[in-house]
Design a protein around this nucleic acid. Structure first.
Lengths: 253, 253
DNA sequence: TACATCGTACGATAATATCGCACATTTCTG
DNA sequence: CAGAAATGTGCGATATTATCGTACGATGTA
């Protein structure tokens, strides 16, 4: 009856699905969850009770509904902790150098996930959210990572990508994208201007693991008006130095 | 064979245990995990494979071992998101007012869990870690929350607590603690000086839910030398105003 | 070269979670 | 305020499900 299942333990996957229900809902009741997932009320109840005992869920004293629990938060803070701990001081240095917003992301198949963000005091509102996911082709960080992959892998990803357009400037042509990535690989950085959001420009450089494969990236983004060519060039030079240093400090993977 | 189990789904709890193995280890192999938990290699492998498919674990391309996955990070960022989103601007205001480190914590049975921290630029090293857990009796935030609970619940918790001493100043007497909490309840804030760490002093005020029960707290902490009585008094007055406002803005729970 | 350890795979057995039903409580509605 | 609907919760029987034992190839070590 399961739509897809390799050799996975069903109750665990179902439990994860329950947790994921809360990505769009702060609080949910047993019946709501069972309907969202097509589970029987009793089954959902058993899973929820277990998750509550393990503190991945907790029950509101006020509403009686469930929400994500503290153990989940604690575990979340351990994810990529090394990378974040090492990189954050560099991010802060970048902000103080250029007074623009700085991001740290990691690759997740065909997306990037935002791990850390340091806002400039003078930053206008920029809607990247820590924990958020964006496609590779319309972000500087995504292109930077793609450019730092072995050509075969880069091509494989591009083939599987859906070049959805978020603005009129978003690249939609795979050949064009591949060509850009090749030159970016030589430059050591990637740029994006108003492909994600009008008025926003961003430059990024990748972080490499011991296999020489990009797995993360650091970016500086700001309003297009301030991000002129000379400024971008200056930022990129710093980015390349810093990402090299971070990669080296990671020491593993 | 399980040590304790109410009506919980075992595979789910075991999966959670696997995740928790990574609190002290960045990377672990199948055999290591199975030994840590006393599971058969095959059983652990099945669970790990499932968690990997759901991206709660991921396998390092370099070492072949497993580590916590991005989906766990993403879920973690959703925990208490409302509280954090609303509170953080106030935390930042507090830092700019007093140039000391500010923390946001939530209650977790007999502990507090650190949700957010904003460092003063001039902060010395203070070893609270986001996602970290500390006992109630030796932190200002813990005492603040206890003071904001209904007396019956407060007493119940104190009875169940282990007043372990972290420094020579840590309260070890339950009657004394209860007496302090009663007066703190009237004041609306709580203090702690060198009970957690020598040289460190902290003041905190609780956040209340709609039932009038404290469930979280905000604190300002700094070196004892700077945290004199007049300064603490000033901070507390601001804290009380701000926590009231945050509680009100939460609107629910 | 031989040995140990690791990750991975598969099938049979036995334990396990699921389903269906039922009840108490709360929330909605007229 | 009363009746109705929906919700959270509990329990047992069945059949699905995860576990265990065993085994193999790959990697690393002596």
């Amino acid at each position: 009856m399961a739509l897809k299942s390799e050799k996975n333990i069903q109750s665990v996957s179902r439990a994860v699905q329950i947790l994921q229900c809360f990505e769009n809902n702060e609080e949910l009741g047993v019946t709501e969850i069972s309907r969202l997932l097509g589970l029987h009320k009793s089954t959902a109840f058993g899973l929820i009770t277990t998750l509550e005992a393990d503190k991945l869920l907790e029950k509101s004293e006020v509403t009686g509904k469930y929400r994500l629990g503290l153990e989940l938060f604690r575990l979340g803070t351990k994810v990529n902790a090394n990378l974040r701990r090492i990189a954050v001081p560099y991010l802060e240095r970048l902000v103080s150098l250029y007074q623009e917003t700085v991001n740290l992301v990691v690759l997740d198949d065909l997306s990037v996930v935002y791990l850390e963000k340091v806002d400039s005091t003078r930053s206008m509102y920029i809607n990247t959210v820590i924990g958020g996911k964006l496609p590779l082709h319309c972000t500087a960080v995504g292109k930077a990572i793609l450019s730092g992959l072995p050509p075969a892998e880069r091509q494989d990803k591009v083939e599987r990508m859906d070049l959805c357009g978020l603005t009129n400037n978003t690249i939609r042509d795979k050949a064009k994208l591949l060509a850009y990535l090749e030159s970016a690989a030589l430059d050591g950085y990637a740029e994006e201007s108003e492909e994600l959001e009008l008025g926003l420009t961003c430059v990024a450089a990748p972080l490499f693991n011991h296999l020489g494969k990009a797995f993360a990236a650091v970016s500086v983004s700001g309003p297009t008006s301030r991000m002129n060519a000379a400024f971008r060039q200056e930022i990129c030079e710093t980015l390349i130095v810093m990402t090299k240093e971070i990669s080296r400090k990671l020491g593993h993977d």
